[in-house]
Amino acid sequence: MAQTTAHNEQAHNHHDTGHGHGGHGHGDHHGFSHPMPIWMLLSVFFALLVLTGLTVYQSTFDLGNAEIWMSLTIATVKAALVILFFMHLLWDKPLNAIVILGSLIFVALFLGFTLMDAEGYRENLLYDSVNDPRVTQQVDAATPTAAPAALK
């Protein structure tokens, strides 16, 4: 019977990829309990603190447009530390990693298309409004309707 379920396969993988740092303690055959060593928790925490300091420090410089990318990069490194270690993704099932990383693809899709479009029609919104007769008319037309409200 060559039928092996994905479930069993996953269980097997999990046994094999169980990370080496000790503390398995009880019940080896139920290998889903993998306590993180304290030194690892603490070093991740201090790395996060240092990166927080770094991002505050870099904000004191004027980096122009690079600033946002710099701070986003640092934030992403921090987020990666949290996800990989605190959230245990490094030792988790591949499926869970796919799930969360996959969601980022959809976030990128959502933000990408929306921002691309917003950037595209922006020129239609912010064209030379001073010289465009249509807009001047509309502003003139809009002001009286708003003004009585303000004076009321």
Binding site: L109, F113, M116, D117, G120, Y121, N124
Partner: peptide, 22 residues
Amino acid sequence: GFLVWGHHMFTSGMADVTAVVF
């Protein structure tokens, strides 16, 4: 299904490029 939502907005004033892509 996630790649096509813009086709509801062709007349909403969206950018030409995005409209073509969608």
